[in-house]
């Protein structure tokens, strides 16, 4: 049997290291003034990173407007990770609530929730997302809500089946007979007991949302300037790929490290929290 301790899981250690570094950079980003990130310096445009013969002021080079790549990367990591984090939490909330409602109400409401799950699974989410963007335009709040719709159906499926299982067990009916109302039974008794699989489901959703957000921003349909995200940086850098490949490679590497880290940590969490599912 595989040892589930973190000590033996090198991938998860690397993943956690990058996540901590990312959080540190995000904290650093919050203290950075907006002027510094947006500072345009046309005299020093398209400078290569230090290790490829660049200057020591802009250690990761500059972009097409002479803005510092390091500062923009930190800002982008902050935005991308922030969007993915908010959207994952919101999606987890929506999915869990829908799953609980389906499990409690059964009947028509259950059918409705299952119909919505089928609906979402019937079309690639990217196409649904693009349709909603076409009809309702784009703003950062709307965009986060849109991203949260990705993966809610998996959380809902998990929450629904686990809550049905839990309801059949003694503890749920025991607290019900003690007079706890439905909200209390679900929030204080069932939720803590099924949190493991839900957290695993969320760690699956998070990297997918990072990929989705970066894909849409790459296409120019996600995060809009002056705000920037990792995908948007790759999208704008694409036009300069032959003269300044670092503009594409640096944010690409940041995306890859982020999704890879969460996947590795998720694998380990899955072994640790829900060993039954292998």
């Amino acid at each position: 049997m595989a040892n589930r301790s973190l000590r033996f899981h090198v991938g998860a250690q690397i993943g956690i290291a990058w996540i901590i570094l990312m959080l540190g950079l995000t904290a650093l980003g919050l203290t950075m003034s907006a002027d510094y990130v947006l500072n345009i310096d046309l005299a020093h445009r398209l400078q290569p990173p230090l290790m490829f013969g660049g200057n020591s002021v802009n250690i990761l080079g500059t972009d097409e407007l002479g803005r510092d790549m390091a500062a923009r990367l930190i800002k982008s990591i902050e935005v991308s990770a922030g969007i993915a984090f908010c959207a994952t939490l919101l999606g987890l909330f929506i999915g869990t609530a829908a799953g609980f409602v389906a499990a409690e109400a059964r009947g028509v409401l259950d059918q409705l929730v299952q119909g919505l799950i089928d609906f979402q699974a019937s079309v690639p989410f990217l196409i649904i997302a693009l349709t909603l963007l076409a009809f309702f335009g784009n703003s950062i709040v709307l965009f986060v809500c849109l991203m949260s719709l990705h993966g809610w159906e998996r959380h809902a499926r998990v929450a629904r089946s686990m809550a049905m299982e839990a309801n059949a067990l003694g503890y749920a009916s025991a607290v019900r007979q003690l007079g706890a109302n439905t909200m209390r039974v679900y929030a204080l008794h069932i939720l803590p007991n099924i949190a493991g699989p839900l957290i695993v489901s969320a760690t699956l959703a998070f990297p997918e949302i990072v990929l989705l957000e970066s894909g849409l921003s790459f296409l120019g349909l996600g995060v809009q300037p002056p705000l920037t995200s990792l995908g948007a940086m790759v999208g704008f850098g694409r036009d300069y790929i032959d003269v300044a490949p670092w503009m594409v490679l640096l944010p690409s590497a940041a995306i890859l490290l982020t999704t890879l880290s969460i996947n590795l940590v998720g694998d380990w969490l899955q072994d640790w929290l829900a060993p039954r599912r292998r």
Binding site: G11, P207, L211, S214, G215, F218, G231, V234, R238, I241, D242, P245, V248, S252, I255, L256, T259, L260, N263, L264
Partner: peptide
């Protein structure tokens, strides 16, 4: 594992960088 984590536009741009540029 890397294939799952990498966005498709990064694969595409990597190919462009190698084979086209």
């Amino acid at each position: 594992v890397i294939g799952i984590a990498i966005p498709n536009f990064v694969i595409g741009l990597g190919l462009v960088l190698i084979f086209a540029i």
